[in-house]
């Protein structure tokens, strides 16, 4: 058998493989570039950026769970100016492929300003619009849980962006396909799903929440089945490409996500417990394809009826 072709495509951008570190678990790549050549990655979704710099939420921000964790970082980021002037250019020196710029906001105007700013940056291939952060009280997920607001944000961002716009969806909704269709109808070029599930842990000794912000976003292998289900439902409901994520930790998980309908796959929490996780997954992919008699990985996208 010839070596399997593990390349894929997102809105005309060729990826050498479908593995993309998810926003918020990979910073701007620096910490990982010290450990391995990050140019093996299909792309990188960088840390979510808002117009103003944000410190984020109070400590503690992390709670362990069975097969996962809750985080309540709260969009800590240096602000869009710093990201455009410093972080993205510095990333282009160590990573030579198009990246996914993840933006967030508290108003439609803020999303538009951030989109305009990253749209001009050379190494940005895709703009990922995060309407689903569960860790900020206004904005973020408040946009992502209403089809009407998703439509508004999508329309406004599409009006200013020349680059492909992907809307990152929240799983914390009654019917995610409604949100997906709202984004598609206003011209979204693709969708990323799922963001974290709202969760909470209680310190039973102290009788108080583990996390200072009480609730946070649950991620890790525990949420993979939820993510696979939603990627499956959404990819059947829309025609635009889907980037699948949620608990992906192995080459087998990548394949499962693609069979559910994902054109590419993001790896999040796994980077935090094993900094070499993406590298290992990419190295395992060809062998895993051979085992499953997959000659071309892109052939299996949405193959499950």
């Amino acid at each position: 058998m010839v070596k399997p072709d593990i390349s894929t495509e997102l809105s005309g951008i060729r990826l050498s493989n479908p593995v993309i570190p998810a926003s918020g678990t990979f910073g701007f790549g620096k910490e990982f570039a010290e450990l391995y050549d990050i140019n093996i990655l299909g792309s990188i979704s960088v840390k979510g950026t808002t117009r103003e710099p944000r410190f984020g939420n109070p400590q503690p921000r992390i709670a362990e769970c069975p097969m996962g964790l809750i985080n309540s970082v709260g969009l800590q980021n240096p602000g869009i100016d710093e990201v455009v002037k410093k972080e993205l250019p510095e990333l282009s020196e160590i990573y030579h492929k198009p990246v996914i710029a993840n933006i967030s906001g508290f108003s439609v105007d803020e999303y538009v300003e951030c989109a305009e700013a990253v749209d001009k940056v050379e190494n940005v291939g895709i703009i990922e619009v995060n309407v689903s952060c569960p860790n900020v009280h206004a904005g973020g997920m408040a946009f992502g849980t209403s089809a009407e607001n998703i439509a508004k944000v999508t329309k406004a961002v599409k009006a200013v962006a020349k680059k492909p716009v992907y809307i990152k969806l929240s799983p914390n909704v009654t019917d995610i396909t409604e949100m997906a269709k709202a984004a598609e109808s206003e011209g979204a070029d693709g969708l990323s799903l799922i963001n974290t599930l709202m969760g909470m842990r209680i310190d039973v000794m102290r009788r108080r929440p583990v996390i200072a912000n009480k609730m946070g976003g649950f991620s890790g292998p525990a949420i993979l089945p939820v993510a696979v289900r939603m990627v499956y439902q959404v990819s059947k409901a829309v025609k635009i490409p889907v980037i699948g994520m949620g608990g992906v930790s192995s080459a087998r998980d990548v394949i499962e996500m693609m069979m559910a309908g994902a054109s590419a796959v993001q790896v999040g929490a796994a980077n935090l417990t094993d900094p070499w996780a993406c590298k290992k997954i990419i190295e395992e992919l060809p062998g895993e394809c051979e085992k499953l008699h997959i000659e071309r990985l892109s052939d299996i996208i949405g193959c499950v009826e």
């Binding site: 990979f26 910073g27 910490e31 990982f32 992390i62 985080n71 970082v73 980077n271 900094p275």
Partner: peptide
């Protein structure tokens, strides 16, 4: 969470 500077959990 990570211990090596990626997640911003301990800022």
């Amino acid at each position: 969470a990570c211990g090596f500077g990626a997640c911003m959990g301990c800022s």
